[in-house]
Structure formats: C-alpha cells, structure tokens
Design a protein around this nucleic acid. Structure first.
Lengths: 250, 250
DNA sequence: CCGTGTGAAATATTTCACAGCC
DNA sequence: GGCTGTGAAATATTTCACACGG
C-alpha cells in the first residue's frame, strides 16, 4: 500500500455509504479490487459459486479476513453454500465505483506513460484515458494505445481545458520528480481531487484531495529490508558492516 | 502493502536487528524509504539539521508517527535540537539495507520493463539491474538503459543461469498476467526469495518467499472508491441518509 | 526553553470461534 | 453437514501528552 492517510473527515462524515454498508475500513477497500479481479477470473472459467475458503486462497488472504471484508458490504453469501460469483462481483463493483465510467488524465508520456496507456484492464474496469500530456515537442502529437482505445499526446498547456471540460476525475502523474508538484498544483486547481503519483516526491495538497503514491524504489527497499534480515539470520557473521563501497555492474 | 505475511519468527528470532533496533513494525519499514529520500533532498539542499516537525511535514506524516518510527531504530536525535540530516539518513540506509548492493532481475521488456530499467534512483540506492529478460525474439538483444548503466535484453532461457550465478537478490515481474506465475515459479526455483510483481495476478509462493504486488488498476480503484463517496456526499440524491437524526459526530 | 523519546490511551485491523441458517 | 456472518479477543498501529536531557 502506499503510504498514507488521507482526508479522513472525522467530523463532517454523516451518511458514508448507501445500500447496506456503513463506513468501510481502508484496509478492506484496498483489498476489494483484488477480490473483484479474481471473481472475474472465476466467472470467466465458468465457476458460478465459491466458498470463502476457495476465494480467500485465490486472493492470498485468510478466509476470516475475506468474510469480514465482505460482511462490510452486506450479506451476499448463502450459508452452507458460499457466494454466487457474478452476483458478488457485481456488488463489489458497485461499491468500488466500477459501475460508472471514470475519466483519467495522464501527465508524462515517457516510458511509464506509455506503459500506463497500453495497460489493459484499464478500460475493462471503466477507466478511460481522456487525456495524455507532455511538454516535449517530439512526443506531442504521437498516437499511443491499443487500436480502439488510442490517445494522442497533447501539450501540457491543454491540461486545464481538458480537465475542466468535465471528463477527468483522476489524475496520474508520470513525470520526473522535478515537475510533479507543479503538475499536481495544476490538477488540483483544475478541480481534480484524486491523484495517483508515480514520481518519487511527496506531494503537498489540500486536505480534500487524495493522493496515492507508488514508488518503485520504495517497494524494492521494503523487499531489501526483509532480504537483509533473512541473510543476517542465515549468516551470523560479523556483528558490524563488513565493508562498504562496492562496484555495481550489469 | 502486499497482501500476505510470512516469515514471522516470533520465538526463534534471536538477534533480529543489529545495532540498536529490535523488531521493526511493518508499517514503519514501509515509511523508512520515504524518510530516507527526503533526508537526501535536505542534505542536497545543504540542510544539516531537522526537527521531527519539519521532517514529518516534508514526508507527509504526523510528527508523532515520525518520532515513533525513528525510535525503533535507536536514539539518533538530540533533544532540544533535532536530527542530524546525514547521520540519520545513514542510519536509515543501514537499517533498510541500502549500504550494500542488491542485484535485481527484471522479467519482461515491454513498456513497463523499459520504464523500470530507465528509472533513476534505482542505481542511486544500490539496486543494480543484473538481468533483463524477455521471450520475444524481436526485443532480445536490444540494449536499454541510460548510458553508463546499460542492460541487454536476454532470452528468458538464461534466467536461471543468471540468478544462480549469484548476483540476483530480487526479481521484478513485468510480464503479462498469463506468464507471471510461471516466471515466479522459475525465480523461486532458482533461489530468489523477494519478488516485486507488477502483473495483475495473485502469485502462489512458498511461505519463505516475500511478494509485493503493485497493480495500477487496484490503485485507481481505491481512488475511485473515495471519489465516488465524495460525489455521493455532494449530491444528496440518496433515499436514506439526509433526514433522520443523523448528526452523530461532533 | 525546546524538541526527542516513550509509556499509556485510543484506534484500527486481524484472528478466533461459534451461533445461525440453508 | 457445511459455510456464512459476526461478536469478542488478540494484535497492530497511531495518537497523546509529558518526563527528560542538551
């Protein structure tokens, strides 16, 4: 998960959910998309019913956690039987907001921007890239994306007009770190309140804007931490660092 | 955060950390890389000392959380003054494992693979791409990466020999979902125990292997969930909430 | 004084274990 | 009989608030 908090509204929160659910825990929200994806695979495989044990195993969580998570949405299972795959998938989709289309603008058409535009399972979940921007003259005008869902790289100057024309709900920042805060400010000023940031910088935003940070280097460092622990444990060698500087090569 | 846990060693853990620290909470470990990055920026800016308030603000966390996190590493601050930027950065680097080089293999040389290889702040944190693999004949042999840290795309058939030759600690899966489990199995068989998975699939691994999943679609869905809540709140078209004595919070 | 380091309290999340329903 | 849904217990994490040391 990315870092932080977000926008808890401890006071103003009045009627948090519709339908059955009340206030769904953040930890649960972060797992719902995975459940939804796996349920989709099950449906594609022709499976019509799953038990919490089966679904939990496929999602890599404990059965108890899965059941507790689902219980926050309502009682969509059948005791003694399990869950109807398609029905449950739909209920999760509705809760997460996948039953309506979301417009996404991507800023930065470098390698990462290319990868994002090409990402399948984007459109399949209701996310449409309504704008792709860059400042580099060479890439402006390029047409990217799979046939059928193509996007033309536009000048960053057009960002505001695209966002304010109403189609953009989520901004994805795929620029170098140096430009990220500036781009973020412009997104916020234009009305975007949900931002996914791939640039390795902490963004400053107003309290009502939610930012999720995804940083590859952070993920690697978390792995490195545990890897180091394992190695330390396996080899009770020197109590202090053996040596430092090392040449790194590929 | 990835889904699962593993490797807990509640009893057997004898000397988990070196130096001062004991058993560091996962939540803290996930934030240390951010502290480290921001401290590096401060150092570059010529700042030699920071208070927990200043550093916390720059990292987007609360001062109390920051101090508690750092307290798990030891007492590296000075009361009434703050922390020495470079000293603290070094202590975090040592704890996370950044003072030694880590070999990384990347499987999949598509757009995402390209982006990963090109990622700066990779080498700068001691991560070296020691192998980049793909199955597509057209890309095998291509040379990617910034000048000075270039990598040649090799056939996936060479994965095992590269990993087993000893230089690879971490595997990064940037393949389509269909191939991810197969690649994962091969990495694990070759001895890799830390895997970063960008493919939208839950990987099955032995208990002593740590997997972190990063799925763009999941991140977007989490944003969509909150965005939906906001929109619902703004447009009280719902049949339930608004009326009855709902003013619970104060 | 000032700001760190830290017990203790408040929250959040996960796990247990079993009653209830198909 | 089997499996969901859920209170209650166990853990984990965050926040508070203040004693302590430079």
């Amino acid at each position: 998960m990315s870092l932080d908090r977000s926008v808890r509204s401890p006071l103003s929160a009045i009627g948090p959910a519709r339908g059955t659910g009340r206030e769904i825990p953040d930890a649960t929200v972060a797992r719902l998309p995975v459940y939804h994806r796996v349920l989709g695979q099950f449906a594609d495989a022709g499976i019509t019913t799953v038990s919490s044990d089966e679904l939990a195993a496929a999602c890599g969580v404990s059965p108890a956690k899965l059941r507790k998570d689902l219980s926050h949405l309502g009682s969509y299972g059948t005791r003694g039987v399990g869950y109807d795959v398609r029905f449950l998938a739909y209920q999760i989709a509705r809760e997460v907001g996948l039953t309506q289309p979301w417009g996404v603008v991507i800023i930065g058409a470098g390698n990462l921007g290319h990868a994002l535009v090409a990402y399948r399972g984007f459109a399949s979940r209701g996310f449409a890239v309504v704008g792709l921007f860059d400042t580099h003259p060479d890439v402006i005008g390029q047409v990217l994306g799979a046939p059928g869902a193509q996007v033309t790289v536009r000048s960053l100057a057009e960002l505001e007009s695209v966002v304010m024309s109403g189609g953009a709900h989520i901004g994805v920042i795929a620029t170098p770190a140096e430009s990220a805060q500036d781009v973020c400010d412009r997104l916020v000023a234009a009305g975007v309140r949900s931002i996914l940031n791939f640039a390795p910088t902490v963004l400053a935003v107003p309290a009502d804007v939610e930012v999720r940070e995804v940083d590859l280097a952070v993920e690697l460092q978390i792995l490195a931490f545990h890897e180091q622990r394992r190695l330390d444990e396996a080899a009770p060698t020197t109590p202090y660092p053996p040596s430092l500087g090392e040449a790194i090569n590929a």
